[in-house]
Amino acid sequence: MTEIALATGFLLILIGLYGALTNRNLLRMIVAFSVANTGVNLVLVGVGYLRGRAAPILDATLPAAEAPARIIDPLPQALVLTAIVIGVGTTALMLAYAYRLYLTRGTLDISRLRELKW
């Protein structure tokens, strides 16, 4: 299961980077970035997974004394939770700037935005 998650996550990162580097439309580039973002999260959660263990939530069937032997690593999950929320913040920023660029220049095609090209 860990291997599947890691392989999928790495492939998603590669697909996302490919899309971000080859597309000319800014919105498509942002879509590709969000795909790569999902891939990174999948890799991080996959690293925390241990075979045959339960989610890190205690209840009557999983008392605190048995927890270290029966739950998976909770730390990557907490980090990924943060990463997802920050990810939507950065996506919103990218979209807002893309829209602003569209308003001033009338295009989303990066090959037509040449002011900073050298």
């Binding site: 998650a5 942002i30 879509v31 925390g48 263990r53 939770l81 997802i84 939507v88 919103a92 893309a98």
Partner: peptide, 25 residues
């Protein structure tokens, strides 16, 4: 992968809100 917290976050924020942000723009 036994991560229900992350699953909820991804479904509500990553999948729901982000898609709608894209569609708004």
């Amino acid at each position: 992968l036994a991560a229900p917290d992350v699953a909820m976050t991804e479904a509500a924020i990553g999948s729901g809100l982000t898609t709608f942000l894209f569609f708004f723009i």
